[in-house]
């Protein structure tokens, strides 16, 4: 079974540091990165965030590198297009394709570089949040916002069922694979369709059962979850994370 980022977040040593602090740091990093005009700022944010994730979050470096490779295909393609088509300035190199001149100039190259660094910085910030803050903690943050209750209820229930259905899906997929259900394109298309339709029917039945179960327990449109108070902790967590806080703040400032 594939490991999701949430699994790491639940085991993360930074799980119990204040949520608002983490969200604040990540939000600041993302906004700084996206609004900067030079690649240096997002790059340094990327380095700081990666170090914070690897050292303080104790994420295995191999897994982290694999994560960073995820967006690679999309980013590389798009960056190449930007390099060829964007910006002005003297041409660095180029070639002719069917009477059509394709060339990279300095403006395009620097823009491509900037976009690449922004994406890298943004992704590192996002990974930090995803790998240190489990969704359960984010729900308590979401509850404090003014989003409608039904939206938050819906996302909480969805969160629970994602894991139930992933389990079902993987069981079926393994069973199909050992019966050579994926040995060529045609059969895999059929197996996949069977899997998805079974999953849909299972989830439909599960939804009906859940409603009965929740009604029996007096569900009135609001699910109560236990939430630990962390208000007094903000100072402690500030001191605790002072080291990387300072580190990050210092690096971000220039």
């Amino acid at each position: 079974m594939t490991k999701m980022l949430d699994d790491y977040a639940l085991l993360s040593p930074l799980r119990y540091t204040n949520n608002w602090l983490k969200i604040g740091v990540v939000g600041f990093g993302i906004l700084m990165g996206i609004s900067s005009q030079a690649p240096l700022v997002p790059f340094s944010i990327a380095i700081c965030m990666s170090l914070a994730t690897l050292i303080f979050g104790r994420v295995p470096p191999k897994f982290y590198l694999k994560l960073l490779m995820g967006p690679a295909v999309f980013v590389v393609f798009s960056v190449i297009i930007i390099a060829f088509f964007f910006g002005g300035g003297p041409e660095l190199f180029g070639f002719n394709v069917l009477d059509y001149r394709l060339g990279v100039n300095t403006g395009g190259l620097s823009m491509a570089f900037l976009v690449f660094s922004r994406t890298l910085g943004g992704m590192c910030c996002l990974f930090f949040l995803a790998l240190t803050t489990p969704m359960v903690e984010l729900f308590s943050v979401l509850k404090k916002t003014r989003l409608p209750d039904s939206f938050i209820e819906l996302s909480m229930m969805m969160y629970r069922y994602i894991f139930v259905f992933l389990d079902v899906a993987w069981c079926i997929k393994h069973a199909q694979t050992v019966r050579l259900g994926y040995h060529d394109l045609r059969t895999s298309l059929h197996s996949m369709a069977m899997l998805c339709s079974t999953l849909f029917l299972r989830s439909w039945e599960q939804g009906e059962k859940t409603f009965v179960a929740m009604n029996a327990r007096c569900y009135d449109g609001k699910m109560m979850i236990f939430e630990e108070k962390k208000t007094g902790e903000i100072f402690r967590s500030c001191i605790e994370s002072g080291l990387h806080g300072c580190n990050r703040g210092g690096m971000v400032r220039f």
Partner: peptide, 9 residues
């Protein structure tokens, strides 16, 4: 609501 939740999942 439960039905939509499972649909999202």
């Amino acid at each position: 609501l439960p039905l939509l939740a499972v649909a999202g999942a």
